[in-house]
Design a protein around this nucleic acid. Sequence first.
DNA 1: GCCGTTTATCTTACGTGTAAACTATATTTG
DNA 2: CAAATATAGTTTACACGTAAGATAAACGGC
Lengths: 151, 151
Amino acid sequence: MTENKYTERQRESLKLWIELVRYSGKLEQIIDEKLRQHHGQNISRFDVLSQLERERKTGLTIGELAGRLIASKGNITGLLDRMLKDALITKTAKKDDKRSYIINISDKGLLIFKAMADNNAKWIEQSLQSIDIDNMKEFTKFLSTARVSLD
Amino acid sequence: MTENKYTERQRESLKLWIELVRYSGKLEQIIDEKLRQHHGQNISRFDVLSQLERERKTGLTIGELAGRLIASKGNITGLLDRMLKDALITKTAKKDDKRSYIINISDKGLLIFKAMADNNAKWIEQSLQSIDIDNMKEFTKFLSTARVSLD
DNA sequence: GCCGTTTATCTTACGTGTAAACTATATTTG
DNA sequence: CAAATATAGTTTACACGTAAGATAAACGGC
């Protein structure tokens, strides 16, 4: 009764893929909903703020930011506009290159980001509470090496 | 030099989460792009077709479909409209409930779906080629149990 | 310095996601 | 049975994703 259409390796690959998509999708949904409810922000904004916080002394140009987020440039314009309207970031013309802008996290953004990050750590921990810590380490390592070989 | 702000468990949870998001995001992007290039379809449509193919004898109502895709009802209307325009599916009024519609996969949709599924199996296999098959089985099991405890 | 090319960002058009309000039909309940 | 409520699907408004083309500034070769 074994399906013969695909090889065993293909079947196992598909199974892993499906579980991976389902699990990470569900996890993302949980975190996104929590961020919305508690902070009125979503994962994209959290991602932007976390990159900006890391470089809060110098800021980042829009292009640099786009590169780190693996998002397209066209999209980021609108996202930053909305975040600017909410005063989470600042946008200043770059002196030595008139095409460019420097994006910085604002004081308000920093405050919100820190609260989000702390809560996020708790929520993630809760969501992964069923997993043994050694399994976690093993799986993390596994994923990071697997990801490198995707390129 | 160890960061004291978060517990070890929190730090490991965050690491795993980040790797999970990055890896599955990248994988999804790869598959989505391949589906677009080779079949002019994307993952959402592939997902819809795969659910409809499974029930190709009876079809599914829009609500049932929405439930399986974990997508909101509002969104599915437009998606199905576009797929209907491309003749991948059919939509017929349900006899015993005038509010409902039955969605079926069309012959054309079935053909395209099968080609997509075959290619998808190959692409996934390729993407996961660096992973040992025993590790694959182990992680599949790990993910499916972890997912259950998310609810 | 001028001209063609590259770069940084924006704009536009569109597909897809959510939430909330709306319409039409079914069902439940007094 | 009539009124209240629930359900199926659509519509609307908006956030966010991509791709392609436009614009302005910077760069590089001559």
